[in-house]
Design a protein around this nucleic acid. Structure first.
Lengths: 355, 355
DNA sequence: TTGTAAGCGTTATCAT
DNA sequence: ATGATAACGCTTACAA
């Protein structure tokens, strides 16, 4: 008996006050109480006051689960990213959370860890949990997008961001990847470098092809030839550090090694910096570097790094605003917004000029 | 008519298959179907097979909201941290998510942005949303813990991590902060530094006093006096960068400036590195630095930084495991675990030895 | 072995 | 202006 009691106490959440309790306390029906709480016109002012006071006194809080069941919406949105502990994505999540918080939505996070299978499960899990919509940035392994388009065609609002999926007609928000890498490459060219390598994410990712195109275009526009030996893809884009190390090793042991590298993602830039440090390579004397990075990383390197800053926080905010408009049907289903945010090219005085 | 139809299509989520649909399809009652799905002993094998097949065919997924309403648990846990886009916390969240995922729980994130008011609202929001438990690391502004102890005494399972609250008797997981900063300080002393300053988080945080104690103890154990001019607190612990810059400026303009600094949090270490770079201070010739940091940051500085690594991922995992045990009543309510994780002290050959 | 009915907390549709 | 009832999807006594 005692043991049982203790167990119950332990398990039991605080018995929340319900509309029933208020009804009982006031000798009213639940429907009256419900209406009074929602400030319905059909309830007399006195009753309203009574109910409101009682609710206040009992510290009544509507049960969101019951509401969800009734209204078939949970006021929560799901997010699928490769890794939370990646500063680019954590900044995006920060933006997502800020908008969601303002609008009274919960944010449910899940990670694909760059695994296609995991992404499928995550999405399935989120949708079965009844989220009102999802924000997705596809994993590096993902080349089949049916799991996304299936949900989409079932009416689940979806906004794709950063790493998007071809052929799914929905809202998307991306960085102007072409521009970012074009500027990075051209900056190196303008500083006198001709042998410029590119370190890219997996070729399957939308960001990769766009950024690579910018790199090639910048070379071409400056009468430089594209050397395929200078282009390295890291399939797991930095999640596996050894991939980056290996790619850079290969570059540096070419008969004709590059004098400079553009790193086409935040994670790759970080990995390249780490590799340089481990190998004792000095920037810019041994090798020059410009690439996508966040300010923190760029600023603490020596010399401070000229870099492409991606507006991650803004991207998270924009994606969430779009998603909530979709969810709340504030936007016709036929107009899909394809937004492109401009990256910032930040030149550090100290960085990469040839000595 | 048409407009209405479109609107409905737009708003409507895919009509999910329910137990009722299966029952109807098979000419059974919902209870039979329910029991068959739960593999109850009272259902005949044939019926079970029939139901299971039908469920499979219709792609039936149990509605978690309905389950939540019935069982009064949501299989979701809430997390309150100061900032997601702080690598220490994003690594912790990674750990949290990994355990939660394995156990079929959702993780709902919210940020306090180091604001006490926001922390109160976050916690209120999470609990009203019916999370089964919460993981909390208090904000730097928080010095009153009633919002936490209130929820706790109402029976909501709570695990505090990293920045804990005094006087709340629940599970806690922290780093051995004393040890971490003791080792950092002593390492500098062993390398010949005597004038060692400490850059600390807000004095109200549990981590701050513990780390400061380690610093002082290390000085004392090596016959060095504590100089209060050498101890600087940054109230917002790095969320406001100018605070760090200002603190370091003050240190460097003392009549007798320090030769070395221990930075007592990841964020402070990052901020100090940024400040050094901006001021053109070289490590270790102008100023030596040892502190709490993650490996990425420590490895890309020049020279690579000797540092205290906090097992953030492990902390997130451990906290979540404890919380889930509490939630699932696998652990008596009277035994509160106070776990202390050891930090790793990582010495880089290149770092901080006097030239 | 299977069906009926009540209940989780709320709101909407009828009555009254 | 207020109350009774059904419904959202599911589980579980209790009947049959």
């Amino acid at each position: 008996m005692n043991a049982e009691f203790e167990n119950v106490c332990h398990t039991m959440k605080f018995e929340a006050v319900t509309i029933k309790d208020i009804a009982k306390a006031l000798g009213l029906s639940t429907s009256t109480v419900s209406r009074a709480l929602r400030d319905s016109y059909e309830i007399s002012p006195e009753t309203k006051k009574l109910v409101l006071e009682c609710a206040e006194k009992l510290n009544y809080r509507p049960n969101p689960v019951a509401l969800s069941l009734k209204e078939r919406k949970t006021r929560s949105i799901g997010v699928v990213v490769c890794e939370i502990a990646n500063s680019f994505f954590s900044q995006i999540i920060n933006g997502i959370e800020s908008v969601a918080y303002d609008r009274g939505y919960n944010v449910i996070i899940s990670q694909s860890h760059e695994s296609y299978d995991r992404e499928v499960v995550d999405l399935q899990f989120l949708s079965s949990r009844g989220v009102d919509g999802v924000l997705v940035s596809v994993s590096t392994e993902t080349s089949d997008y049916e799991h996304i388009s299936n949900l989409h065609s079932k009416g689940l609002p979806i906004v794709l961001f950063d790493r998007i999926a071809p052929g799914i007609n929905t809202h998307t928000i991306i960085i102007d990847n072409f521009k970012g890498s074009y500027e990075a490459t051209e900056h190196l060219i303008h500083n006198g470098y001709k042998k410029i390598a590119a370190l890219c994410p997996s070729e399957f990712l939308s960001i990769s092809s766009e950024r690579l195109a910018g790199y090639k275009e910048a070379l071409g526009a400056n009468d430089l030839k594209v050397n395929n030996d200078y282009i390295k893809h890291c399939f797991y884009g930095g999640m596996v550090f050894s991939e980056i190390e290996e790619a850079i090793n290969q570059l540096m042991t070419l008969k004709d090694p590059p004098e400079a590298i553009v790193t086409l993602s935040d994670k790759l830039t970080l990995g390249a910096l780490k590799t340089f440090k481990r190998r004792g390579l000095k920037i810019p004397d041994d090798i020059a570097l410009v690439g996508f990075s966040n300010a923190d990383i760029a600023e603490i390197t020596d010399p401070a790094l000229t870099f492409v800053r991606q507006p991650a926080f803004e991207m998270g905010k924009a994606a969430t605003e779009l998603l909530l408009q979709l969810i709340e049907s504030k936007r016709p289903v036929t107009e899909f917004e394809k937004r492109i945010l401009s990256p910032e090219f930040i030149v550090m005085e100290s960085g990469n000029s040839r000595s």
